[in-house]
Amino acid sequence: MPCQDALAVCSWSVAGTDYLVTAVADGHGGAAYDRSHIGAALAVRAASEEFQALLFFGAAPRAPEDADAEDLAGVTRAFKADFGRLLVRRWRRYVQEDAGAWNESAPPAQDADTSLFRHYGTTLLVACVGPQSVLVGQIGDGDVLFLRADDSVAQPLPADDQKVGGETDSLSMPDAPRLFRTAVFDHEERGLLLLASDGVGNAMREGGLEKLARSVSASALSGALVQVVASLPGFLERCSSQGSGDDVTISMVILGQAKPATESLPAGAEVVAPLAEDRVVAAGPPAPASPEACSDNQGGGGSRAAGPADGNQVDGLA
């Protein structure tokens, strides 16, 4: 059975402001969700592209003297009001396109018809980090947390206590637009944002993700980010084999403290394309290093490595 997790990391400069988007999706697996690995890959793609569209069309034009100021008011409003609906619509369109190629005899699915979408069922975590704010969206299980400079940890989208024992909301559900939750918060100069599929959280004792975030942050502060990222593939492997027995994916955005090096990392870990010297993502699961603005990957085992990117700005919609 293929790994059903997927990951994307993208960065853009829009009207002089840098943004970084990362998404983690976890296909449900099991016989009823036999194309959920594709559903997860389409989810991180749809989320990245929807953020790209939002940032390019949602940000208000600014005067040159305000170029350094972040103008997220319009983006934030549109994110809260429309992102879930637009994301689900885009994901369904991609699913229908894939299904057409997969089985041309399959009847075209309507939005109300969930039978096709269920094959592709997946959760999704997505975050967009701007100079001052973070926009976070989530449907289904998984964890998003933010470690602040004062060492406190915020959970912008707390888990639903009523969803236990593997039950989760899904992009494949008819009311997915309503079930997509959003949060927006300001960040300081330093901090660490962590997105993890439920295979990571389920593998750790209570508070484990917070400890992980603090240890990575401390390593970054001491200049040992690359070393700790190099050990992530082994750590994630243990999470799966000794903890959750599930696919595991983690994406971290480190603000204001990273000093990425270019030395090689073992296959599976990555320090990805920071927009500026103070913004880095460490992530899994693996894929070949990509110098492009947006890298998606999917699959299990192994690691990947990349140094700071130098060509990751996008001037327009892909």
Binding site: N202, A203, M204, R205, G207, G208, L209, E210, K211, L212, R214, S215, V216, A218, S219, S222, A224, Q227, V228, S231, L232, F235, R238, C239, Q242, G243, S244, G245
Partner: peptide, 13 residues
């Protein structure tokens, strides 16, 4: 000493 990611891994009950 090589820094390691922390967070205790435990079996699922």
């Amino acid at each position: 000493e090589t820094p390691l990611p922390e967070g205790e891994i435990a079996k699922r009950p």
